[in-house]
């Protein structure tokens, strides 16, 4: 099974080709060019370099959010159009699950955090149950204030592994409040990797969970637009 994985939900743009659970190629850029400029050239490069072509694919997997609204729409629009054009199934994977997968260090709690601005993070709480493939979701995903997240974490008494770009603005606060329970991963383990996006889709297939059609592939925003928020507040 050959799966193309895409992620454009944060500052990095990542593209990977997975055959079985073997990474054939994975390219990630963290450059100031926009995802719109980077994504298709990276996909094309992956195919050119590996000798595989779009027609060899069995599925396309994409991080569907949460993350930058514009960024995740570029990824989801691209995945929708590729699967529509190639007649393939699609898989929309939660960005937080992708990050959590990258934080496997054993039997631990994982709390990926993405900066959602307005003093909030997009987050979810996961636990690995003894193995990499056994990831359990305990809370979320949701957009919450830092205080609410800390309040939620105070109900647990074990170490928590943090990753994601939300660590940059809020890491110090987490550390101060959680003390030695706070474990943080460096940047190379803190961005969503396209190979893990594709791997999550592979796992679905192996577990017999059906993939979706391009029409059902939807972004995960976790938040309404500003205009709707303002109207709800009124």
């Amino acid at each position: 099974m050959i799966i193309l994985g895409l992620d454009t939900t944060s500052k990095t743009c990542s593209v990977a080709l997975l055959e079985g659970d073997n990474v054939i190629a994975e390219y990630t850029q963290n450059l100031p060019r926009t995802h719109s400029e980077k994504l298709m050239p990276l996909i094309d490069t992956v195919f050119r370099d590996t000798g595989y072509g779009p027609k060899d694919l069995d599925a396309v997997a994409v991080s569907r959010g949460p993350g930058s609204f514009t960024g995740l729409r570029i990824g989801v629009s691209t995945a929708r159009a590729l699967t529509q054009g190639l007649g393939l199934p699609a898989a929309g994977i939660c960005t937080l699950e992708v990050l959590a997968r990258g934080a496997f260090v054993g039997n631990n709690l994982v709390c990926p955090v993405l900066d959602a601005r307005k003093s909030q993070v997009y987050t979810a709480l996961y636990r690995f149950n003894k193995s990499f493939s056994n990831l359990e979701i305990l809370q979320g995903p949701f957009a919450v204030s830092i205080e609410s997240l800390l309040e939620l974490l105070s109900r647990y008494h074990e170490p928590v592994v943090f990753n994601g770009d939300g660590v940059i603005p809020y890491g110090e606060i987490f550390k101060k409040r959680l003390k030695e329970r706070y474990l943080h991963l460096p940047h190379p383990l803190s961005y969503p990797r396209a190979s893990l996006v594709a791997w999550c889709a592979l796992k679905r297939v192996e577990e017999g969970i059906p993939l979706t059609s391009y029409l059902e592939l939807k972004p995960l925003y976790l938040r309404v637009s500003e205009a709707e928020r303002a109207q709800q507040r009124e």
């Binding site: 719109s36 609204f69 514009t70 570029i74 629009s77 691209t78 995945a79 159009a81």
Partner: peptide, 19 residues
């Protein structure tokens, strides 16, 4: 509108690539 345009541009690029 840039966000709106990007949906069309991303879709068109990927579909023209696939087709």
């Amino acid at each position: 509108l840039v966000g709106a345009l990007l949906v069309g541009v991303s879709t068109a690029k990927a579909l023209s690539y696939a087709w």
